[in-house]
């Protein structure tokens, strides 16, 4: 289990975050390059990255795909009103479906918002997203009282996360 108490970051960790927030250098020895930039040795870069992975400050080191460029232009946020006693077991199953990219439990906002399970579904068109939502509905069965799929129609703003050094 990840321990948030381990997550205390010092100034060097923060410099490492700032140095890598645009991405990891794409050279043969990327950690050596970061070490040279920060004025520490490469072993320390690796130790610090490992520590941040262990504490969860870094979720993972990897690639972030752009759904639109991959051809998944229909982006549906499916939201489900699922029995609180069963939502965690079912949420794990839905998160494991190959077409679900994000899956979370969130609070209801009654009376306006009865949905507690959010699953982002991507597809080349809405018909495909609807078909995938139908598979989720099947999996949830009688644990789900109602659902909707909210399609995005416009990106009003998209800036990455920015941390100041």
């Amino acid at each position: 289990m990840r321990n948030p108490a381990n997550a205390a970051l010092d100034a060097v960790d923060r410099r490492l975050m700032v140095a890598t927030q645009a991405g990891l250098p794409r050279v043969s020895r990327p950690y050596d390059l970061l070490a040279a930039e920060l004025g520490i040795d490469a072993a320390e870069v690796l130790t610090r990255l490992q520590r941040m992975l262990d504490s969860g400050v870094i979720r993972r080191i990897g690639a972030v795909p752009n759904h639109y460029a991959i051809g998944y232009t229909a982006n549906g946020m499916s939201v489900w009103n699922v029995d609180d006693r069963r939502v965690d077991a079912l949420g794990a199953q839905i998160g494991a479906l190959d077409f679900v990219t994000h899956c979370y439990r969130r609070p209801r906002r009654m009376p306006q918002w009865p949905y507690n399970l959010f699953a982002m579904v991507h597809g080349p068109d809405r018909a495909e997203v609807e078909a995938k939502a139908a598979r989720i509905a099947l999996l949830l069965g009688d644990a789900c009282a109602a659902h909707e799929v909210l399609y995005s129609t416009e990106i009003l703003k998209k800036t990455g996360l920015r941390i100041s050094g």
Binding site: L24, G56, A63
Partner: peptide, 19 residues
């Protein structure tokens, strides 16, 4: 990355874990 098929490659920070 140049074709924007990937938006990023590198560490993904969980800002919650950093306070």
């Amino acid at each position: 990355l140049a074709r924007r098929v990937l938006t990023r490659f590198g560490p993904m920070f969980q800002i919650e874990r950093a306070g």
